[in-house]
Design a protein around this nucleic acid. Structure first.
Lengths: 114, 114
DNA sequence: TTCTTATATTCGAGAGATCGAATATATCCC
DNA sequence: GGGATATATTCGATCTCTCGAATATAAGAA
């Protein structure tokens, strides 16, 4: 495998992470991990403009992370790879540890300052 | 827990993902998962400017993903949470599946077009 | 066809990310 | 102290992201 392809893999890998790098898209993915939802339901859930929801869904579609199935006038979105949510869960664990570390460090510093 | 805090968690979660959303930072994290490295070694590995490496390391530091330990004139960086690389591995798996799906779809389409 | 509802796309403004170049800081050695 | 090396930061240009507003498309009902 040529180095140029290796770099392209890392680019795609980064673009996948980029798709997760927005709080609303994270919410969308977690919601879809429960059950498929159409755009209207997601719009109500997120409490933002419908066009904005569609824009975020377009990002997730571009990255191949969701399926879109038209059902009459609705479009039903579903999660394509549950592993994405597993990855998000791992990162949430990292976040928890990181916050805990930060808090403990702050507490130690407070002891010294007191 | 108040809704405002829930939203802040999703914001932090997204910021964590954002830290992974760059090919060079992904390479840095994978390299550090093998062993701690100093800035010079990372610069050589990535083949980019030293200032750029420092900038990427600053992002990872800000998000609390790496430790930086000064050793004389060098600074040794190490991975703080191996789970981050586990999450990257999961996403790489998703990427592989996604590419495989795309290829298979293209093959089926070629059958029809032929 | 026209009307209505659901969803998608386009556009432009503002915010944010990335880079190289230049400069600053920190440590060590003399 | 001064000089050398390693790393960090700042600055400005360019690019990308996100949003709301407006508009476009698609399907169904009348």
């Amino acid at each position: 495998m040529k180095p140029v392809f290796v770099e392209e893999i890392h680019q795609l890998h980064a673009e996948l992470c980029q798709a997760l790098a927005d709080p609303k898209r994270i919410l969308i993915l977690y919601a879809l991990s429960e059950r498929p939802l159409n755009v209207g339901e997601l719009t109500e859930l997120l409490g933002i403009r419908q066009s904005n929801v569609s824009q975020h869904l377009a990002v997730l579609r571009d990255r191949g992370l969701v399926n879109a199935e038209r059902d009459g006038t609705n479009v039903r979105y579903s999660l394509k790879y549950p592993m994405v949510v597993a990855a998000l869960d791992l990162l949430r664990g990292v976040l928890r540890d990181s916050l805990s570390d930060t808090r403990n460090r702050a507490e130690r510093l407070m002891e010294i300052v007191r």
